[in-house]
Design a protein around this nucleic acid. Structure first.
Lengths: 272, 272
DNA sequence: CAAATAGTGTCTCTAAGACAATATCAC
DNA sequence: GTGATATTGTCTTAGAGACACTATTTG
């Protein structure tokens, strides 16, 4: 025991070169679109936070928020900190997406990225107010596979449209890794990170885990369904959706009224 | 463009302290137990490769194989390299398990670990021959949850028994993280890494991805079922198992005979 | 009343669990 | 023949998709 203490007191990590380590975060939010008709329910948009790069490399291109790991924190804590610094909001949840460590992924040098997806509630962003930093914007997201098997990631904000093209490559254990064919205005390998984050998010939405994170504490089942459809980009019949989620939610006695149609009961997540 | 080239030519990564980065690998193999009865099919054992530490810290305790990331490789390549160096065998597959970056996880200093699970075929290990390095051994694995919700990880080899106890903590998105209650003779936080790797492996065995990696190219359905049961630690009725995997396998014209009972048709994985 | 959403009931189809029954080999 | 595994068939039950139908509100 003494010898172990002694060993550690004298121990120095070797002088081999070490990489810089970052956490990069794909922060998602869902916001209702403007209503067309006073009695129609609004549609949702899935939004992703991007930062316009002010300096080289990839100057003036858009990138995920992220930053270097500090010595007193875990990579998860680093991811949370970076999002808070950028938005003044604590994410509802965070999900590891993968480690990106190709030696040439960053022209500045040896930098490996721990990628996370995170969910941010729209209320909290509204409460925090816009930072008016014109270099941080929420882009509307679309992500689909075409007939040729190529994936198209389209991010739009106020006339700016980024369109990246990716190929899905199978790795062992049936996992897929995205290879960038056209980075379409996104910095570094961030198009691949965003694609992986969206896949991870959709995977978590299958069992409604990710869905609840986008919702307030009390919500209507229709609102919940629209969130799920926004994430998954598929639609379900309302009757079947209600049956499928019935095990995950519980009724409250409150109703949402005043929308020009039958009031909807509010539900909350069932703790189990 | 010139200005970007110029920028990069002059760029130096800041002198902030950087962590050491490792890849640690839980390498699994399945080996048949000795036969009791000439006509009974053998049972399987799930094995995990551990290395006895020769120096401080955690001297004489058992640890996962692993090592430092080099500058010209990805973390996946590092994981594959470490396994090959230890076993002289290329793993069939490799699966990311998580990043372990608690600042105090390694008494030697700031070292973050990228954890992987990998599958190694028994044939290839037999072909490579035992390295006779007595400090590397295949331990038999058992991993279960008791009534109190605590997880017990038991690793046995030739009279040596390591018994770690862990608690499963829910993180966001319904994921679980294992916290070590008793590391039971395992070095560092490797008990938690092994628990996470086993969970990931079981998850991949649900759709039979991981199962095929343990099998030779041609196999009987009973052999496949036994592999799955060994990984998942549950049992299924043979009739139902056959139905469930029928979409994933295809018949060959060969049979396995000579076992004191009806010969079994050999199958292979269906490519899709 | 019209338009829209909220909510229920039911038919069908498929997949999985349980279990019975038959087939085929080595000794 | 005996003891083991290999293989097939069928009954039942649970869950998801499709769809018809009723209920309730605001303008």
């Amino acid at each position: 025991m003494d010898s172990e203490k002694e060993f550690l007191a004298n121990y120095r990590l070797s002088d081999y070169e070490r990489p810089s380590v970052t956490a990069d975060v794909a922060a998602f939010m869902i916001r209702p679109e403007d209503q067309q008709n006073y009695r129609k329910n609004p549609e949702n948009k899935l939004l992703l936070l991007l930062i316009k790069r002010g300096g080289h490399p990839f100057k003036d291109m858009w990138a995920l928020p992220g930053g270097f790991l500090q010595k007193d924190e875990t990579v998860e804590e680093c991811a949370l900190r970076e999002i808070f610094e950028e938005t003044n909001v604590q994410p509802v949840s965070i999900l590891p997406v993968g480690v990106f460590s190709e030696p040439d992924r960053d022209p500045r040098g040896w930098i490996i990225s721990n990628a996370y997806a995170s969910v941010i509630s729209e209320e909290s962003v509204r409460a925090a107010g816009q930072d008016d930093a014109a270099d941080a914007q929420w882009f509307s997201v679309s992500f689909d596979c075409d007939e040729a098997g190529e994936y198209h990631l389209t991010l739009t904000w106020n006339g700016t449209e980024l369109h990246a093209v990716l190929a899905a490559e199978k790795t062992s254990f049936g996992r897929t890794r995205f290879r960038i064919l056209d980075r379409g205005g996104l910095a570094f390998d961030h198009a691949a990170i965003i694609a992986a984050a969206l896949s991870a998010l959709r995977n978590e939405a299958k069992n409604y885990e990710a869905v609840f994170d986008f919702l307030p504490e009390r919500f209507t089942l229709t609102a919940m369904q629209k969130v799920q459809e926004t994430i998954m980009n598929v639609s379900v019949l309302p009757a079947n959706f209600r049956r499928m989620v019935s095990a995950y939610v519980e009724e409250t006695d409150e109703y949402l009224r005043g929308d020009g149609h039958r009031p909807a009961r509010l539900y909350r997540r069932k703790q189990s």
